[in-house]
């Protein structure tokens, strides 16, 4: 079962692109971007929004589940939104991609040791603990988080939350 999920995720990976969209920090911009994806039928795998070093500018990191031809359209259509300043496709240069996950996993006293070891291997941390559960915090690329999720599934996951991918170009290049 776990492997099956993983294969599905891997298959999707072939079709995933991370793009960064710099937008004017105006009310309603998120609605414009989300609305564009909805009405043109583009798939969003994840979307994160936050301010940048310039308070006038917000940054959206979007994981798009489409092939290259559609991705090109996505980028061009995004450019047409008046408040979109820049769109960068991270397939075009080396980039760091990260997301953060909080995983609430059943932690029966018999398994606590094992779970802590798994967390350690993945450089995660136990950030909360009850008599029945741990909350594991882990940061990394999507694959890494999928992997720890898969391993922790064996103990029974009660809840998981992921931030979605954020990305930054390596070296001196900026978006």
């Amino acid at each position: 079962m776990a492997t099956a999920i993983s294969n599905t995720i891997m298959a999707q990976m072939q079709q995933q692109h991370v793009i960064t969209v710099l937008v004017e920090n105006h009310p309603g911009v998120l609605a414009r971007v989300a609305g564009l994806f909805a009405r043109r039928g583009y798939n969003i795998e994840s979307l994160t929004v936050s301010v940048t070093d310039d308070p006038q500018v917000s940054r959206m990191t979007i994981v798009v589940g489409e092939d290259h031809r559609v991705l090109e359209q996505v980028i061009k259509q995004l450019h047409k939104l008046i408040e979109v300043i820049r769109v960068a496709d991270y397939a075009e240069f080396p980039a760091i991609e990260r997301e953060l996950a909080l995983i609430k996993v059943n932690a029966d006293p018999r398994h606590r040791r094992e779970i802590m070891e798994i967390a350690e291997v993945f450089r995660g941390r136990i950030v909360d603990m009850s008599d029945k559960t741990f909350v594991v915090e882990v940061t990394g690329g999507t694959e890494k988080i999928d992997k720890i999720y898969e391993l922790l599934s064996a103990y029974g996951i009660r809840e998981m939350v992921r931030t979605g991918v954020i990305a930054m170009a390596r070296g001196t290049k900026t978006a």
Binding site: K76, Q77, K80
Partner: peptide, 8 residues
Amino acid sequence: IDPAEIGK
């Protein structure tokens, strides 16, 4: 004039 029309 609209780049998005090219290749659509």
